[in-house]
């Protein structure tokens, strides 16, 4: 008769297991193929926010009026959020001179967690902290990552649910067109 018992994990398995344990939900699902942004009908006003970044500097949406804003909601434990971060940095480098800002609001994590994340994913755009998740709940967000494109008048113009390769010229040209 076969017996079942709790496993005594051998070390090669332990390494694999620890990798799994430390990972968040797996299989991010990648942005691939023909990418798009979904237009938001009637362009409602983007909810204002007044947050602090990990270095305690204020971050307000109102400060970006007159610019198009790519506004991302993310968390360090979210695999597709991590996956799209490098392309967001490349997008930031590509459009920062075009009157387009990239801002990524972290949902529910503290400055230490974000600083630690930045050692592996260095980015230069602002990372406001939505510690009590009130800001993300004021936007029509169902899951992370979700990204909005806000026009220079402060209205929600596009949404992308799930990750994207943000340095894709097709996406960035849609954002640039808001400035015309």
């Amino acid at each position: 008769m076969r017996h079942l018992k709790r496993p005594t994990t051998p070390w090669p398995l332990a390494v694999t297991f620890m990798a799994l344990l430390l990972s968040g939900p797996t299989h991010a699902g990648t942005a691939s193929g023909d990418q798009s942004l979904t237009p938001i009908p009637e362009r409602p006003a983007a909810p204002e926010f007044d947050l602090k970044d990990p270095e305690d500097r204020p971050q307000r949406l109102a400060d970006y009026r007159g610019k198009a804003v790519i506004l991302n909601f993310w968390a360090t434990w979210c695999p597709p959020c991590r996956e799209e971060m490098p392309s967001m940095q490349r997008a930031h480098e590509a459009v920062s001179g075009d009157g387009i800002a990239l801002v990524a609001i972290n949902v529910g994590e503290d400055a230490d967690t974000i600083e630690q994340f930045l050692t592996n994913y260095p980015v230069e755009f602002p990372l406001p902290m939505d510690l009590d998740s009130r800001v993300v709940q004021s936007y029509p967000v169902k899951g992370l990552p979700t990204t909005f494109v806000i026009d220079p008048e402060g209205r929600l113009a596009y949404v992308a649910t799930g990750g994207r390769e943000w340095d894709d010229p097709k996406l960035l040209n849609q954002v640039r067109a808001l400035k015309d």
Partner: peptide, 15 residues
């Protein structure tokens, strides 16, 4: 995963 969600072309979510 969200209990209810609408997906337009190219959208995905995980959870």
């Amino acid at each position: 995963f969200p209990t209810r969600q609408t997906f337009r072309g190219g959208d995905y979510n995980w959870g």
